[in-house]
């Protein structure tokens, strides 16, 4: 399961990054790290861009291509 499969309001935990070092580094520097939890806050109408709210409060937007590269596990509220 990846971020792309989530709906607005879903809580999830990041398991793995399915892309290269650059991508991982970018996310890590924004505080999107393995094991961190987040909520899906907004998704655009055509499901092109996703906004994640990290536990720390940081809001991060991902394009759908990138959303498919972040493996997650759904968490219960």
């Amino acid at each position: 399961m990846t971020v792309y499969d989530l709906k607005i309001g879903d809580n999830a935990k990041i398991i793995n990054f399915l892309a290269g070092r650059e991508f991982r580094r970018r996310l890590v520097s924004l505080g999107v790290t393995k094991e961190s939890k987040f909520t899906i806050k907004h998704v655009t109408m055509m499901r092109n861009v996703f906004e994640l709210e990290m536990e720390s409060g940081t809001l991060v937007a991902l394009r759908k291509g990138e959303a498919r590269k972040v493996e997650v596990k759904l968490c219960k509220k």
Partner: peptide
């Protein structure tokens, strides 16, 4: 390859 689109949404 497209560069990843990962962007902070500032407060």
């Amino acid at each position: 390859e497209d560069e990843p689109f990962v962007m902070e949404m500032p407060k």
